[in-house]
Simulated assay, not measured.
Amino acid sequence: MKITEKNTKEIRHTLNELIGNVTARNLFTGYGLFHQDIMFGLYQSGIFYLKAENELATHLENQGAVSYLTSSRSPPLNIGHYYRLPQAVIQDKAVFKRLVILSIQQIRAKKLAEALAKKNRIKELPNLSIKHERLLAKINIQDIATFKTVGAANCFVRLKKEGVSVNLLLFWNLTAALLNKNVNLLTEKERTNALNRLNTALVNAGFRKIKLPDQA
């Protein structure tokens, strides 16, 4: 057993019971804890710290969590967004699991926002081309920020209202683009949630719902 695996065995076991697929990597000091390549935790000297910012950080502090910089007398790392959770939270598996999931979701959302911010034009997004950029321009979607604000479902409905021929493949491409991923990598859950949003938007606009072949 490698030294990293040995030194993080207990915390990985605890976290794997909550969310599964937790791995550890050796850092300059301590260990980073990852779920699907997202570092959500820090493990140092037998203490677990959960990453959180903004509202989630405030929520953790209200629960009694203490910042890494505060809890370490001479912190070797200048990390201000990691929090030591109180034992009452860690021992409550339901609460602990919810907080870990919220942390991962927050990190993933931030990474997505940063990735989209680096792109300037709609055609630079995954699955999209100049054809899609011109198509969205017909409904006054000129940039990524507006596209993100309006969302794939509302873009689809607006195009339909304009008499543009649209189909489910276009919707999947728009949806995946806003997730900064290849359309073929959309999960079943992502497709289901996206289709629910689309059908709600369609009904609100006076159109019929879209049913998948196995739902017909």
Rank of each mutant, 00 (worst) to 15 (best):
E162D: 08
V157R: 00
L85V: 10
L159Q: 00
I141A: 06
A145C: 12
F96P: 01
I79W: 13
K110Y: 15
K123M: 15
K93D: 09
N120V: 12
L135E: 11
Q105N: 14
L85Y: 10
T149P: 00
P86K: 13
E124C: 13
L135R: 14
F96E: 00
A137I: 08
N140D: 10
K97P: 00
A88E: 14
R84N: 08
A152E: 01
R98S: 09
R84I: 07
R108M: 04
D92V: 05
A88M: 12
T146S: 12
E124G: 11
K111A: 06
A109G: 08
I90M: 09
N167R: 10
A115H: 10
L85K: 05
F96A: 02
G151W: 03
T146W: 12
K123L: 14
A145N: 14
R121K: 07
A137C: 07
S103N: 07
S165M: 12
A152T: 08
E162P: 07
Y82H: 10
H81D: 09
L135N: 03
E162R: 11
A94F: 12
N127P: 03
K160Q: 10
K160H: 11
V95W: 12
K110W: 15
L135S: 04
G151L: 02
L159W: 00
E114D: 11
I141E: 01
K93Q: 14
D143R: 08
P126C: 03
L85T: 06
A88L: 11
V100C: 01
F147E: 03
Q106V: 09
Q87G: 05
C155T: 01
K119N: 06
R98K: 11
A137W: 14
R134T: 13
I107Q: 09
R108E: 09
V95P: 02
P126W: 01
S165V: 13
V157M: 11
G151H: 06
V89I: 14
N140S: 13
K123E: 15
N78E: 07
N154C: 06
I90D: 01
L135H: 03
K148T: 07
L112D: 04
S103F: 06
A113G: 12
H132R: 11
I107A: 04
A117T: 14
G163K: 10
N140A: 11
